[in-house]
C-alpha cells in the first residue's frame, strides 16, 4: 500500500498558499507530521481525506487518483479531524451507527463492533447518554471510535491527543502502533513528544512546504553536534535569544540553564545529545 502525494498546492488567493508544491510518498507504518500552527498540516490532511481538493497536483493511492475518485479513498479511510463536532441529541451508540451508515457499513456485526469499540475506549457506561453531556476527552474518544468503524487501511489523526489525559494518551499510542501493522497511519501534531515515541517517519512542515522528511535519525542529523547548553543569568537571556535558537530554559541555583542550537557555540557551552525536538525547532526556526 502506497500513498503518493505529487506536487500538490492549495491556493486561497493570488498570493496566499495553504500548501505549495508538496510531494511525499507514504508507505505502511506511522507518519508523524510536525509543524507550527499554520504550517499546512490540516490542509494536507483534509486533502488526503478528500474533504478538500488541491488546486494543483495529484494524490495517488494504489495507482488510483483520489482527487478524481474520492470514493476509492473514502471506502478505506478513517479520519479524525482536528476540530469536529457531534450531534448533541444522539448518544454515542446512535452517533456511531449514523457514521457507519454514512460510510456504507452495516450488517449483523455492526452493533457488536460498536460495543467493542466503545468498551475498548471506556465509553460503554456512557454509551446511551446524549453526547451533548460528554466531556471534551469523551468526545475525542467517540471521534477515535468512528475512525475505526470501517476497518480502515488509511488512518488520519489530526491533533488526536487534544483533550486526552496522560493515561488515555498512552493507550492511544498503543492503539496507533497496533493499527500501523496493517495500515498507513498519518498523525499530525505540533507537540513533538506525541510523535517521537511512535512515528516511523517524520515530516516537518512550515508555511505550506515540506522542510524535511525521513526517519527520526535522519532528521536528528540536521542538528548533530549543534546542540549545547550553557549557564547564563536572567538578564543575558534576551540578548542570547536574539542570536541563538533557544530550545528550553530551566532554573538552576539562581541562574538559567539554557539549551540551544548553534553552528558556532558560545564559549563555556557544553555539547548535548540532539533529539527530535531540537531538530524540529532548528528546521522551523532557522529561517
Amino acid at each position: 500500500m502506497t500513498l503518493e502525494i505529487q506536487n500538490i498546492s492549495k491556493k486561497y488567493n493570488r498570493n496566499k498558499y495553504g500548501l505549495k508544491d508538496f510531494s511525499i510518498t507514504i508507505e505502511k507504518g506511522i507518519l508523524g507530521l510536525l509543524g507550527p500552527n499554520g504550517a499546512g498540516k490540516s490542509t494536507l490532511l483534509k486533502m488526503i481525506a478528500t474533504v478538500s481538493k488541491p488546486t494543483k497536483g495529484v494524490i495517488i493511492l494504489n495507482k488510483n487518483n483520489i482527487v478524481k475518485d474520492a470514493n476509492y479513498m473514502r471506502k478505506q479511510l478513517g479520519f479524525l479531524p482536528q476540530d469536529f463536532g457531534v450531534y448533541p441529541n444522539l448518544n454515542a451508540f446512535e452517533f456511531l451507527e449514523y457514521i457507519a451508515a454514512m460510510k456504507g457499513i452495516g450488517g449483523s456485526n455492526l452493533k457488536s463492533k460498536i460495543e467493542q469499540l466503545l468498551d475498548g475506549l471506556n465509553l460503554l457506561d456512557a454509551a446511551r447518554k446524549p453526547i451533548g453531556s460528554y466531556s471534551g476527552g469523551m468526545k475525542q474518544r467517540v471521534g477515535i471510535a468512528q475512525a475505526l468503524l470501517n476497518d480502515p487501511k488509511i488512518v488520519i489523526f489530526d491533533e488526536p491527543t487534544v483533550g486526552l489525559d496522560p493515561e488515555e494518551r498512552v493507550r492511544f499510542r498503543n492503539l496507533i502502533s497496533d493499527l500501523a501493522q496493517d495500515c498507513i497511519v498519518i498523525l499530525s501534531s505540533h507537540i513533538v513528544s506525541d510523535i517521537d515515541t511512535i512515528a516511523d517517519q517524520v515530516a516537518v512542515m512550515k508555511n505550506g512546504s515540506l522542510l524535511s522528511y525521513g526517519n527520526q535519525e535522519k532528521l536528528i542529523k540536521h542538528v548533530d553536534q549543534k546542540v549545547f547548553s550553557i549557564i547564563i543569568n536572567k538578564e543575558q537571556l534576551g540578548g542570547f535569544k536574539n542570536n541563538q535558537i533557544v530550545v528550553s530554559t530551566s532554573r538552576k541555583e539562581g541562574m538559567l540553564d539554557v539549551r540551544y542550537i548553534s553552528e558556532t557555540p558560545v564559549e563555556h557551552s557544553i555539547p548535548q545529545q540532539a533529539n527530535l525536538e531540537d531538530a524540529y525547532l532548528f528546521l522551523t526556526k532557522r529561517n
Binding site: L117, G120, R171, L175
Partner: peptide, 25 residues
C-alpha cells in the same frame, strides 16, 4: 478496569450502501 481496543478482536465490518440507517437517524 481500564480497557484497550484490541484490533485483532474487532468484528470485520460489512459493506451496506443502503440508506435506511441514514434515514432512520
Amino acid at each position: 478496569e481500564v480497557k484497550e481496543i484490541v484490533l485483532s478482536n474487532l468484528h470485520k465490518s460489512e459493506i451496506d450502501y443502503g440508506i435506511f440507517s441514514l434515514v432512520k437517524t
